[in-house]
Design a protein around this nucleic acid. Sequence first.
DNA 1: GTGTACATGTAACGGGTTACATGATTGC
DNA 2: GCAATCATGTAACCCGTTACATGTACAC
Lengths: 187, 187
Amino acid sequence: MARDNSSFYVLLGILGEKASSGYDIKKKVENEIVHYYKISNSQIYPALKGLLDDGYVTLEVKRSDGKPDRKVYSITESGRAIFREWLDRPVDYQNPGGNELLLKLHFGSLTDIGHNISLLSRHREIQAGMHSAYIGIQKEFFAGKIDNPQMVYSFITLQHGLVVTQAGMQWCDEAIDMLKGLEDRRP
Amino acid sequence: MARDNSSFYVLLGILGEKASSGYDIKKKVENEIVHYYKISNSQIYPALKGLLDDGYVTLEVKRSDGKPDRKVYSITESGRAIFREWLDRPVDYQNPGGNELLLKLHFGSLTDIGHNISLLSRHREIQAGMHSAYIGIQKEFFAGKIDNPQMVYSFITLQHGLVVTQAGMQWCDEAIDMLKGLEDRRP
DNA sequence: GTGTACATGTAACGGGTTACATGATTGC
DNA sequence: GCAATCATGTAACCCGTTACATGTACAC
C-alpha cells in the first residue's frame, strides 16, 4: 500500500464488516466512530481508488434510478489479510492523535481476545509510566511553595496529566477485566 | 500573520517571557511543554523569520567565539499585543489535538485569572455535554444485552469516553478552585 | 576517536482540512 | 422556492514530520 496510515485501515475495517460505498463509509464513521476519528470525502474517495488499484477491494457499480449510482466496494482476501496484520501490529505511540488504540479496539472482534488484552496491557504500562513521572514532578512542586502565580498554571497543566493518565489506567483495568471475562466464557 | 496556528503563538509566548534563540526555544519546549506540545526545527526557524518580517519580534545576532553565533529574538509591542489577543480568544475546539487549552493555560499568568477561569468553565461544560451524551449511549447498551462479542468492544471504547470526560471535569473543578483561591487572595 | 551539546537551517514528503463542483429527488 | 439527503469527486492549502546539511568544542 502506497500510503500506510490509519485511514486506509479504517476503510478496510469497515469494508470488512460490510461492502459499502464511499458515502456509506462516511455515514458509518460519523455515526459510530465519531468520538475518536474523523474522515473527509477528500480522503475517502482517493483512498478507495488506491485500495482498488492495490487489489485490496473490488468494485461494483450499482445503478438506481432517481438516485446517483453507487460505487460499492467489497474487501478481498488480500485486503482482509493486510487489515488483520495491522490489527495485530502493536499500536504506534509515536504518531500523535493517540486514537490508534481506540480504532484497533473498535475492530477488536476481528482478532482474538488475547491480542486486545495485550494492547490494553501495554497501554496501561505506558500510562502508568507517565503517571509516575508526573507524580515525581508534583513532588518537586510540593517541596517548593506553590503560591507563585506562574507556578499555579504549571501545576494545573501537570494536574491535567495526572488526572488523565489516572483515568486511562482505570479504563484499561476495566476493559481488561471485561475481556478476561469473555475469554473465560469462550475459550 | 500569514499562518495563524498555535506554534506561532507558542513562540511569541516563550519570547514574551525572555528573549531567546531558536535553539533556546526548542530546549524550552522540550523541557517544559513536552507533555502536550511538540515543535521541530523546521517549524521554529522559518516561523521566527516570519515573525521578524511581520514585526512581531526583533533580531540581535550575538557572536561568541568557540560556539556558533546566536540569533536572539525579542518580542515587540505588536507581538505582545497579538499574543495577548490570542490568549484571550476562546479555545478553538474544532481543530484537533485538543491541547490548545493546555497551551493557553501554560501562559495563563500573562492574562487575568478571570479569563483563565472562564476558559476552564467552558471546557468543563463541553466535557459535561460529551459525558452525558456517553451516558445516554451507555443506557442503550444496558437496555440490550452486552454479551455479544462485537458489542463488548464498542462498550469499551464508549467507556473510554466516559472515563476521560469524567476525569476532564474533575480536573476543571480542581483547577477552577485553585484559581478562585488565587483570585480571592489577590483581587 | 566517539559522542554530546551548541547552533542554524533546508527539502521533500505526507496527511488532513476547507472549500468547491455537480446534479437529481424529496419534503416543507 | 428552499433546504436537506443522496452521491461522487477535485484543488488548494496548511501544518507537521523526517531526514539531511554544516560546523565547533569539550568530555570521556
